[in-house]
Design a protein around this nucleic acid. Structure first.
Lengths: 153, 153
DNA sequence: TCCTTTATTTTGATTATCAAATATTTTTAA
DNA sequence: TTAAAAATATTTGATAATCAAAATAAAGGA
């Protein structure tokens, strides 16, 4: 429609693509070159608490359990996670991070930290507020509009 | 660190995941169920101008030409695009959208439109300006910091 | 004309993913 | 209390998306 529209749209599209690319590549060129962005996200989900069941993690990542089984197999093979059966209910399987996995978890956390800090750094208090409330609106828009798809938690 | 940090971080993460999921699913459940999100992005890149070469589109999408060849094959098979050789330089191949492809292009455009409208709605002119400049800073940060990775245009 | 460069496609992998089938354990209900 | 149903996970058999390297074809010099 007007200028604001296309400027904003382009900004959002660009930033979105940037983040995607950065996350993908920051790893490869970084200290942990044997690990993919998907694997980092799995590690993130596993590390959210000390022990999680396959089901919980799969739901969190929004993948099927079959997919997760394979992901976890690989993480174990690479030494980032371990898996063991519950004693109370022998159907359930727990996953947890190894020391090596924890390290990745922390590195990724640091990446986010740095990203956010650099955003905030350059903004005045007022700009910060507006940015936050705009993003809240954006999120609200998605949640309302795509309730069906997003409702999962 | 402080509150702003975690609020912003969570917002960005949420929005990010939402967009990913929505784009992925909005299609399946919608009018165009035979088309994937990747394909829509390809259609978007192809539709940017009336005729584009394989090379241009591949660069735009940041995939290899081999990958694009396969993507375009499929789009053609499904009737969303067509391909023909240049007469001036018979090495180059042009791609363009069919009527059916244009339709998808417009639907996706509408999605973006609506998204942006929902953000702008409720912002004063002043706030709108601030939002835009904040996002510009954010983009600038990425471009500077991750120049190596992002430099491709 | 032959060599080099450019534009694309083909080939042969790998990774991420799903749905359906299978295996095991627990829960329920007759 | 035991047979059927439900829950939790894994395995299997596909398909998507992707890449790098090899092959193809055309253009542009020297």
């Amino acid at each position: 429609m007007d200028k604001s529209y296309s400027v904003l749209n382009q900004l959002l599209v660009d930033i979105f693509n940037d983040i995607l690319l950065i996350e993908q590549n920051a790893l490869k060129s970084g200290e942990l070159s044997d690990i993919s962005i998907t694997e980092v996200h799995a590690i993130e989900a596993i590390g959210k608490s000390s022990e999680r069941t396959m089901g919980e993690v799969a739901q969190d990542l929004k993948v099927t359990m079959g997919t997760l089984t394979i992901m976890v197999d690989k993480l174990i093979r690479k030494g980032y996670a371990e898996r063991f059966r519950s004693e109370e209910d022998r159907r359930v399987v727990f996953v947890r991070l190894t020391k090596k996995g924890e390290l990745v978890y922390k590195l990724h956390e640091r990446f986010h930290h740095e990203m956010i800090r650099s955003i905030i750094e350059g903004l005045s208090d007022e700009e910060e507020k507006i940015l936050i409330s705009s993003l809240e609106k954006l999120k609200e828009f998605f949640r309302k509009k795509y309730d069906l798809i997003l409702r999962k938690e």
